Computed example of a mutant assay.
Amino acid sequence: MTNVLPITETISLHVPFRLVKRGGRKEIQLPEGTPPTPRADGALLKALARAFRWKRLLESGEFTTIAELAERESIAPSYMTRVLRLTLLAPDIVEAILDGKHPPKMTLAWLLGPFPVDWKQQGHHFG
């Protein structure tokens, strides 16, 4: 049996922040000098999710061609092909994107451009 002592003091914690409205939503704004918390890029996350879903649909045989899948998704086949290339990103890069820890220059538009398929070369290209 453990002896438990009663708490005789109260501890107060002061956390400076402000609530601000942005686009009809309330956000917490931390004081200046506070390191920013990483934020995932919504467009990039959506594109990654779509790319892996489309890849799964193609690999399962549910759709036999990119053109067929693109037609069902009402997307241009050329755009779908560029988004599908995101499935070739190195796992550490995908993880950084999911965690919001990717470099600011790594936007969806930038990633839809050409990049090396080799994972080691991607580190140099994106680093």
Rank of each mutant, 00 (worst) to 15 (best):
M1N: 12
T2S: 11
T2A: 12
P6W: 01
T8C: 06
E9V: 13
S12F: 13
S12Q: 14
V15L: 14
F17Y: 15
F17D: 07
L19F: 03
V20S: 06
G24C: 12
R25M: 14
R25W: 11
R25F: 14
I28C: 11
Q29G: 06
P31K: 03
E32I: 03
T34P: 05
P38N: 01
R39Q: 15
A40S: 13
A43E: 10
L45P: 06
L48D: 04
L48F: 08
R50N: 08
F52H: 13
F52S: 06
W54I: 03
W54H: 11
K55I: 00
L57I: 05
E59T: 01
S60T: 06
S60P: 03
G61P: 08
T64M: 09
I66Q: 14
A67R: 04
A67T: 08
I75H: 00
I75V: 11
A76G: 04
A76R: 09
P77Y: 06
M80T: 08
L84A: 03
L86N: 08
T87V: 00
P91Q: 03
D92L: 04
V94E: 11
A96W: 09
L98M: 10
L98T: 06
P103M: 09
P104H: 02
K105E: 15
L108I: 11
F115Q: 03
Q121W: 09
G123F: 06
H125S: 13
